[in-house]
Amino acid sequence: MNLDELEADREIDPNAPLSLPEKEICDRYEKVFTAAVNDALREKRLTNQTLPNGLVPLRERMRSAGFAFTIKGAKNLTLKNEMAERARMLDDIPEDSFIVWDTSLDRDSAHWGECMTMAAQRKNCRGAVVDGGVRDTDQVIDLGFPLWVRYRSSNGMLGRFRISAWQTPIQMGDVIVRPGDLIFADIDGALCVPRQMAVDILIRAEELANGESELKQWIKEGMSAVEIVERGGYF
């Protein structure tokens, strides 16, 4: 059995060079919107890049983009060294990252809270999408940290859930997320852009966003839907 190509596909370098600085890429993504990015991905036949629809922002105006720092974990009652492993993970978060946390569909624990938020912000992390729960919600909101979660709970992880790995490929819903992929999230949810396509998708999303402004102007001018489509517009 030859799995070399599959292994290479799963182990893309999270620090592979890009044609623009990472911070500029993130900042420019945050000036568009996920629908435009999604449409740009669809043009490249990437139609399954949206993270599960149940992941919603703590506040409607939250919007953030960054490069995936992946975390994997599952229900686990073992306590030994759990906090030490968690601390190692937090210390490994790089600047301009966006945490993507696969909880193996755990629906009991709060995986994110105030102290994790403070630790992530100190590392200049740009946001997090956690397929699980949050606690200390008031404090997280006050800290202004962009966070997408499924639910809220007072149940801390310790003795209920354990992190098993980080910076490894994960799967959330239909989407495989590799460390270093571009994550962008707003009120309409979160999506993943493969790292090697992050700049091309950004440029096309900016074009689509600008084109939508023109389309809205046509509508305001009273142009019919058929005329708009004939001019290359869409609805």
Rank of each mutant, 00 (worst) to 15 (best):
D108N: 12
T47N: 11
R126W: 01
Q139S: 14
K44D: 03
D200E: 07
S213H: 13
K72D: 09
Q196H: 08
F184W: 12
I93K: 00
Q167Y: 10
D4P: 10
A209T: 08
R178W: 03
L3F: 15
D174N: 11
R135P: 00
L58W: 00
F69R: 01
Q139G: 07
L41T: 04
D39T: 03
P14V: 13
G211R: 08
V130T: 10
E11V: 03
G156V: 15
I12Y: 06
L55A: 06
M172Q: 03
E22F: 02
Q121K: 11
P17C: 14
Q217W: 08
E43W: 11
N48V: 10
D4Q: 15
I12G: 00
G144M: 07
F33Q: 01
A205W: 03
S153G: 09
G233N: 10
F98K: 00
W112T: 03
D142G: 12
G127T: 00
M172S: 10
A190S: 06
G173S: 13
M157I: 12
I203W: 08
D188T: 12
P57D: 11
G132L: 00
Y151I: 15
M116D: 10
L20S: 07
R45W: 11
L191N: 01
E5Q: 15
T70H: 02
A36I: 00
E24A: 08
E206W: 02
R160F: 08
L46R: 12
F67N: 04
T50P: 02
F145W: 11
A65H: 00
G156Y: 07
L105V: 15
P194Q: 02
V56L: 08
M116T: 04
L105Y: 09
T103Y: 06
D181K: 04
A120D: 02
R150M: 12
T47S: 11
G73H: 00
D96H: 09
A68C: 06
E5R: 13
A8W: 08
L6Q: 15
N210S: 14
Y234P: 05
G189Y: 01
I141K: 04
S19F: 08
D96G: 05
A36Q: 03
A128G: 05
R126A: 03
R61D: 05
M172C: 14
H111R: 06
Q121A: 14
S224A: 13
T137R: 15
R204Q: 10
V149C: 02
W112Q: 01
L215H: 05
E7D: 04
E5T: 09
S104E: 14
L51R: 00
F161I: 04
L46I: 15
D13I: 03
D91C: 11
P146E: 06
N76R: 09
G211W: 07
A84F: 01
L182F: 05
T34I: 13
R152W: 11
G173D: 07
A8F: 08
I228N: 09
I99M: 05
A119H: 11
K23Q: 09
Y151A: 05
S104W: 07
E214N: 14
A198G: 13
